[in-house]
Write a protein that binds this DNA or RNA. Structure first.
Lengths: 200, 200
DNA sequence: TGTACATCAGTGAACGCGCGTTCACTGATGTAC
DNA sequence: TGTACATCAGTGAACGCGCGTTCACTGATGTAC
């Protein structure tokens, strides 16, 4: 079993993109410790120095990967919302499901993007992608801010809850068998949170 | 400036402990990437092979460090609770403050212990320490479970919220200056969450 | 349509580094008698 | 109190590994005229 998952390429302008995808694969398979410029190059069937040309260094590659991750993340939430009934509560439930679904589908990537790793914070792709995700959250939260409320507080309440739930779920891979292997579902947790859309 | 922060030691039975503390220092100074068996040994003024004797390997050292972390974490919450008025809401607020205070005081350690890193899950010290932290949370949450509620759901609601808030706060070191550099305070977030002690 | 030239995208060798792990060893400490 | 012995705690050399980064290079592609 050799390691050439991707056939050798020649100048078709897609290498940068491929390296990002390979990086995500590497994260999935080996976690954050398995991500390196050299490993990405090898997996992409390219010289070990090639990634440096596109990303300058490991931090640059990581930033590009996290930018991609935030786009996938935003898309997961957007898709979930698009399928939901057009009421504030249904949309809230949907964004939470989308958040959690992304985490479950990309555990290592999710942990990586929220690992506190230092990135090129000024990178435009990165900024655009993370803003996109934040905008979704912000939009869905807005209807729950009453007249006297700071909308940022409501956002942060919702964000904290769904992020905490998802993050803890990713950390606790293994739970005691006695109660089944799952946390109480997110929907049940949400039901306990008595915030109300401001129109009611 | 040499690197002998701790003078060379000779057989006083405290090396294991010192290595754990040095490991925590290393995390604080350089993050997860700065933690290694060799770096701990060097910092403790001891041969590079010494840590292996006590921890077997890097995973063992990491497990010991996280166990220590969970004890500090539990203590932070316990202290905060001990100083609070003896009402369910005050105790809830106190545990949340203790949770956040620990994260702020030990950012890198907090990120490390919740990084999803694989540890020796069966290690007794580790199990005891994490159970201790969980027990605090569980005890404080109990009064908020009404007659029809699953107590685990209430625990998870509270845990998710405070964990999410703290974790996001650690990730977003830098916020846009325009609004000041701080998130809306945790107390405000908690106020929006209308759970009630079951006696009321 | 052909040619000269610049730039682009990737190569491959080389550098030095820190790492985890193994292993034979040693000298100090503790125990049995 | 002295002696023999076992175990403990740490040493230091050695192993091979993968890593990031630099650098002179090359051959393909694109552009100007």
């Amino acid at each position: 079993m050799t390691d050439k998952a991707i056939p050798p390429r020649k100048r078709d302008g897609t290498l940068r993109d491929s390296l990002i995808e390979v990086g995500i694969t590497l994260l999935r398979e080996k976690g954050a410790d398995g991500l390196s410029l050299r490993a990405c190059a090898a997996r992409a069937g390219v010289s070990h120095a090639a990634p440096t040309y596109h990303f300058k260094n490991l931090k640059g590659l990581s930033t590009a990967i996290v930018a991609r991750a935030f786009n996938l993340f935003a898309r997961s939430m957007e898709t979930s919302i698009a399928d939901a009934p057009d009421t504030p509560r249904a949309r809230l439930a949907a964004i939470c499901e989308g958040y959690l679904a992304f985490a479950k589908a990309h555990r290592e990537l999710f942990l990586f993007m929220f690992s506190g790793l230092e990135l090129n914070g000024d990178d435009p792709e990165f900024k655009a992608a993370s803003s996109r995700a934040y905008a979704v959250l912000s939009e869905i939260s807005a209807p729950f801010a009453g007249p006297g409320d700071d909308p940022e507080e409501i956002e942060l309440l919702i964000w904290s809850l769904v992020h905490g739930y998802s993050h803890l779920a990713m950390i606790n891979k293994k739970r005691p068998r006695s109660k089944g292997n799952d946390l109480p579902p997110l929907a049940n947790i949400l039901r306990h949170m008595d915030i109300k859309p401001s129109g009611t």
